[in-house]
Simulated assay, not measured.
Amino acid sequence: MKTALTIAGSDSSGGAGIQADIKTMAANGVYAMSAITALTAQNTTGVSDIMEVTPKFLGEQIDSVFTDIRPGAVKIGMVASAQLISKIAEKLKEYDAKNVVVDPVMVATSGAKLISDDAIETLKTELMPLADLLTPNIPEAEVLADMKIGSEAEMEAAAGIISRKYGCDVLCKGGHKVSDASDLLCTDSQRIWFRGERIDNPNTHGTGCTLSSAIASNLAKGFSMEKSIERAKAYITGALSARLDLGQGSGPMDHTFDIKSAFTEEAAE
């Protein structure tokens, strides 16, 4: 069986973070492992508290995984402190990790900054150059490219700047600001658009985590970058189309939409 590691924070409501990553990896046919960067108390309406692990403990989690069941791909989600980012970069280099997908969670779709300036700088200087793929949303791409993005042409320009700067592929996620459900893959030689289906579903908690984990899963299975993204977008479209409706806020997707029979069977009376 192919394997993948997620390095991210825990979401107690199960819709994003480690929990979404593990569900996604399992649904995409790989064995999922985790290194937790922080515990959060959160639900569909927001985050009420965060407790980070120490850099030493994070390093020990990553050691435990790589020295026993080596992952075929690594997905990295939100990491809030510079010290933890540095530890992840150190361990990725130590173990020569392959198929590294970094979801550079820095800025919310609303434009609100999610991590400190020093953490952003460490992310840019230490972790992003180790990535095979970066998956920024539009606000994050604006930070990384140092430009405003208001059109598909500007998405292409920004993705090119980011790809050249960090020496990796870039999947710029269009979101609702520029291209609705369409994303752009920029490599050193290509610009490939993935035209997505707009799903009218307000429950989108964890979409970024889910997409990057699905891409990492398919890379671990040996698919090309382009095919991995294509398969990941098809998976997230299915998860949104299932229209799961849980919680009082922006709820989670149905990560198990393709294995529903296991959840609909009931024991005979």
Rank of each mutant, 00 (worst) to 15 (best):
A141I: 01
L184A: 03
L130R: 13
T122R: 00
A268L: 13
A20R: 09
S81K: 13
Q83K: 15
T125A: 07
M25A: 09
R243A: 09
D169C: 04
G15D: 04
M33F: 14
E197Q: 15
V178Y: 14
G206Q: 01
R243I: 02
I18V: 13
S10D: 01
I192S: 03
A267L: 11
S261C: 03
V178K: 11
I7P: 13
T135V: 08
I120L: 02
M51H: 05
E52M: 06
Y235R: 04
V100E: 07
C209K: 08
A108N: 04
S10P: 12
I88L: 12
A26D: 13
A112K: 13
M155D: 13
L58I: 02
F66Q: 04
E156H: 04
E60W: 15
F66I: 12
I162T: 04
N28H: 01
T54G: 02
A32F: 12
L184Q: 11
G249D: 01
T264V: 07
I161M: 05
M25C: 05
Y235K: 02
T54C: 06
A119S: 12
F57V: 01
K233G: 00
S228G: 00
I22D: 04
V107S: 07
K177G: 07
S212Y: 01
S64W: 09
S81C: 05
A181S: 08
I199R: 04
H176A: 13
M51L: 10
Y31I: 02
V101Q: 01
A220G: 05
M106S: 11
V100H: 06
G160E: 05
K87C: 10
D146T: 00
N203Q: 03
T40F: 14
R243F: 01
T37I: 02
I192Q: 11
K177V: 15
G206M: 01
F57S: 03
A159E: 09
A267K: 07
P55W: 06
V74I: 10
M78R: 10
A234K: 04
T6M: 10
L133Q: 14
A267R: 12
M33G: 00
